[in-house]
Design a protein around this nucleic acid. Structure first.
Lengths: 171, 171
DNA sequence: CTAATACGGGAATGCTCGCTCCACAACCTG
DNA sequence: CAGGTTGTGGAGCGAGCATTCCCGTATTAG
């Protein structure tokens, strides 16, 4: 619910109904709304991290792995966009606990892409003079844009085309 | 305030204080909170549209115009990020009146970039086989990511590097 | 079996929300 | 100056917010 509607638009009553839990139980278990939000964010991050690792560390051609992973990010779904990005834009840099998680997630994803690119360079699949860090930073930036557009309801086919285009920087 | 804190986190009382206006005056003038929000969004869109037109239709080399415009998007400011993007992520596709404006803004920006690219191709500054629409779509996607990262407090120098990188697709 | 502990449910806390009512003042129009 | 219109200010409306209290019950430990 935090992912779909955002932090401020989600009330503790909504959460209670969805979890089939009474307010008192929620507060006993998660201390408060903010605590529950951080737990939800951590849960999301754990899942994304697993997906990301599985996709980018698989033993297959680097270009393919990257393309399919990016494609999977713009697949139609009933929960479009990225919870971390929504959090970053809604809460900005105001809440330190949230900010730490957002920063870590962004850094982690960029680092994972960079590692994949380095593997591609080492394997001779990518140009030897490719700057893995700078390129990863660009790919991450574009991915962020893709997920915002995904959230905004943009057509999957068009987003896939943007993926194809950005991957041309690997040539 | 809507830009900085988001729709739900901004109360009519906050708005009243900032505008030095009483609740009753606000409601008489803007009908309700949602109406005021739409007015604020329209005001922002008008300003951005002017900036965008000035930057992209100026009579100078296409690459330069594009680069400087993108650089200007990641300049340090006390109001980082893009109001439209924050709105798109916070309100998603749920509110039709908001959605229409967001869609128009996204389409308009993409079209402006495409027009600039076409000018570059026509002037021989860009490769003749460059697909203006597809490339504009990518540049817009990356710009969206840049502005999210700007909001998230990322370093301007790093964002500029991402700009430089993505502009390589013009070669 | 009993005592202690943990936990869920219902009701209610104080507060802030979006929003409205109404009386009054400022302002044009004649 | 009189009369109608327009906008302002203060007080307050019901509703919903995050949060807490308290009590009954299930669970566990000795």
């Amino acid at each position: 619910m935090f992912h779909r509607r955002g932090y401020h638009a989600t009330s503790t009553r909504d959460l209670g109904e969805a979890l089939a839990l009474n307010p008192s139980s929620i507060y006993r278990t998660f201390s408060d709304k903010h605590g529950l939000f951080l737990r939800a964010l951590d849960h999301y991050l754990a899942g994304e991290s697993v997906r990301c690792t599985a996709a980018l560390e698989a033993d297959r051609p680097v270009r393919e792995a990257l393309r399919d992973w990016l494609y999977s990010m713009v697949e139609p779904t009933d929960l479009p966009g990225c919870f971390v990005i929504h959090t970053a834009t809604e809460l900005g840099t105001s809440d330190p606990e949230t900010r730490r998680r957002v920063d870590e997630a962004f850094e982690g994803t960029t680092a994972a892409i960079a590692a994949l690119l380095r593997r591609g360079v080492a394997a001779g699949e990518l140009p030897a003079d490719l700057d893995a860090d700078v390129t990863a930073d660009l790919l991450f930036t574009t991915l962020t844009g893709l997920r915002v557009r995904h959230r905004a309801g943009h057509d999957t086919q068009r987003l896939r085309t943007a993926v194809d285009q950005v991957l041309r920087v690997l040539d």
